[in-house]
């Protein structure tokens, strides 16, 4: 079982290294993810955010605009996650506190 676990870890590492061979170079602005249009010709979001975030929301911090406006449902989801965590701790550990008090 132990060797099997090692095998999993090694396989995982090998897979990641294999994946890194196909990754684009780091740093140049010509990277695919930063372009305005994808290789299939569709609009890509990153470039749009850089160009239009200030215009759209009058807010210089692009990350804030993306977080709270363009992808706001993600942020709502994030809030729900943390709320879930709070509720969970409340549910799991609540009884003990009451007894102790």
């Amino acid at each position: 079982m132990k060797y099997f676990n090692y095998l999993i870890i090694i396989a995982f590492g090998a897979m990641l290294i294999y994946a890194s061979l196909g990754l684009p170079q780091r740093g140049p602005a010509s990277e695919v993810a930063s372009q305005e249009t994808s290789i299939a010709g569709t609009v890509l979001p990153s470039a749009y955010y850089i160009k239009n975030a200030y215009r759209d929301a009058n807010t210089p911090n692009m990350v804030t605009v993306v977080l709270a406006d363009y992808r706001s449902i993600d942020t709502l989801g994030e809030e729900v996650v943390i709320f879930t965590a709070g509720l969970i701790c409340y549910m799991l550990l609540w009884r003990k506190r009451k007894n102790a008090a």
Partner: peptide
């Protein structure tokens, strides 16, 4: 950094790093 300052024009994508991964990672 992806914070707009008038001295750095945002018409050129190369001027600001990609804000999307940062946003995703905040989440």
């Amino acid at each position: 950094v992806p914070i707009y300052t008038p001295s750095v024009p945002n018409t050129e994508i190369a001027n600001y790093i990609n804000p999307l991964p940062h946003t995703l990672m905040l989440t």
